[in-house]
């Protein structure tokens, strides 16, 4: 008799209550799905820094046809080969487009000539990207960044 009852106890299935666990797991899943920010497609502009750290040239290099563009502030540009021939007109709302037109004219005239960008220290990153975008859009061949030399420390 005692043997039979113990057999019955073994045969009885132990049922785990799964419902609360499934509830919690679903809640976790919904939380992660809601908090996950979809990654926006990002782009980039590839550039190269100078490899050489040359010394100051003894003689002045031959003057080449180089377009210099200075970013003063967002949407405020000065550009020119020798003088600041181009200034974004104040009455134009889209100054970057006006600059891009100027860059396109320059590139079609001298396609191999480099473009030197010199952003002002307070110019925002956005303005730099806008300008890079305009130059790449105009199919400029060489784009350089100019940096002022760091003043040497007094000994």
């Amino acid at each position: 008799m005692a043997n039979e009852t113990s057999k019955q106890a073994i045969e009885e299935e132990v049922e785990l209550e799964m419902t609360p666990m499934i509830d919690v797991v679903f809640l976790l899943l919904i939380f992660f799905m809601c908090t996950l920010k979809m990654i926006t497609v990002e782009g980039q502009f590839s550039t190269f820094l100078p490899k050489d750290q040359g010394t100051a040239a003894a003689s002045t290099p031959p003057e080449i046809d180089k377009l210099k563009i200075r970013i003063v502030m967002k949407g405020e540009y000065k550009a020119g080969v020798r003088n600041w021939e181009f200034r974004a007109p104040s009455w134009k709302t889209d100054k970057t487009k006006a600059l891009q037109k100027y860059v396109i004219t320059f590139v079609t005239r001298s396609p191999k000539a480099p473009i030197e960008i010199s952003p002002g220290t307070n110019a925002p990153y956005e303005a730099m990207i806008e300008l890079l975008n305009a130059c790449v859009g105009a199919k400029a061949d060489k784009i350089n960044f100019s940096m002022l030399p760091v003043p040497s420390k007094p000994k």
Binding site: E42, G43, Q44, F45, S46, P50, M128, L132
Partner: peptide
């Protein structure tokens, strides 16, 4: 020397 500037 290989730099990329990120943009959207």
């Amino acid at each position: 020397y290989r730099v990329q500037f990120g943009a959207e």
